[in-house]
Amino acid sequence: MFENVYEDFWLEQIRHAEGQRLEMLRRDLTGTKKLLEAVLFPVLKTFEGLVLEFEMLSLSGVKIYGDACHPKLRIVFEEENFITHAEKITRERFSFERARARSVAMLGYTYFPYSRDELEKRPEFCQRNLFEWIGRFGSMEGGGLHQLPVYEREVLRLSLFSNKPFGLAEVCGWLQLTKESCRKVLRDLESKQFIYSVGGSASRCHKFMITEKAVALLHQ
């Protein structure tokens, strides 16, 4: 199953890439594939929202690339092989990698590296690390979430992690409330421009998605 899903995902990434990023996607991605198979797919259950060879501009103005990135979660994932990232690395390359990590941080992303040995020998531990990060992110009192009522906060948090359109039924399941109560939560979120309607009609909406305004609030 993973092989088929990965192949479709990789081809989709290729179709929307150009320039240097396209070249990066056509190189040997064995390490990145292992990262997806051992950690990201088991935890996230989907490749939706992920970008391979995510392109960024470093502090020095040079283009840098992350093995995989989830832009909405603001997290860059890396697979690092000991031989290529430590054992045979030059001093110049070592300094470049440190500057690269700082650039990722300055751009507002969490840098989340895994060694090849960890991915191959301790995948459950690697998965647990990501689960813990997601749990802490979703409950940060210092973030913008605390500004909202608890039910609105929970809907935004879960919709961000699900990364796909959601409807009244999903919200009822998340909040364990009646349909009418959940409709009010959705109306309030829509009036604040934290969610927007997807599909449906002028009189009836079937699905919603989180807005960029809400994503920015979650990362304050």
Rank of each mutant, 00 (worst) to 15 (best):
105 A>F: 14
89 I>K: 13
42 P>E: 06
141 E>K: 15
77 F>Y: 10
173 G>I: 05
198 V>C: 12
120 E>Q: 11
185 V>I: 08
65 Y>I: 04
57 L>I: 07
177 L>M: 03
153 R>G: 02
89 I>W: 13
174 W>T: 01
66 G>T: 04
86 A>N: 14
200 G>L: 03
64 I>S: 02
57 L>N: 10
28 D>S: 14
12 E>V: 06
4 N>A: 12
15 R>T: 00
28 D>P: 12
82 F>K: 03
48 E>T: 13
194 F>P: 03
24 M>Y: 12
10 W>K: 01
82 F>Q: 12
176 Q>D: 06
4 N>T: 05
165 P>N: 12
189 L>I: 10
106 M>Y: 14
198 V>K: 11
205 C>P: 11
184 K>R: 12
1 M>I: 01
164 K>A: 08
173 G>S: 08
174 W>S: 03
195 I>T: 01
153 R>M: 04
95 S>L: 12
69 C>W: 05
74 R>Y: 13
105 A>W: 11
197 S>G: 15
98 R>S: 13
214 A>F: 14
185 V>H: 01
151 Y>E: 04
48 E>H: 09
6 Y>R: 02
152 E>W: 04
186 L>I: 07
94 F>T: 03
158 L>G: 01
119 L>N: 00
73 L>S: 02
42 P>K: 04
153 R>F: 04
16 H>P: 05
171 V>G: 02
122 R>V: 05
135 G>T: 12
14 I>P: 06
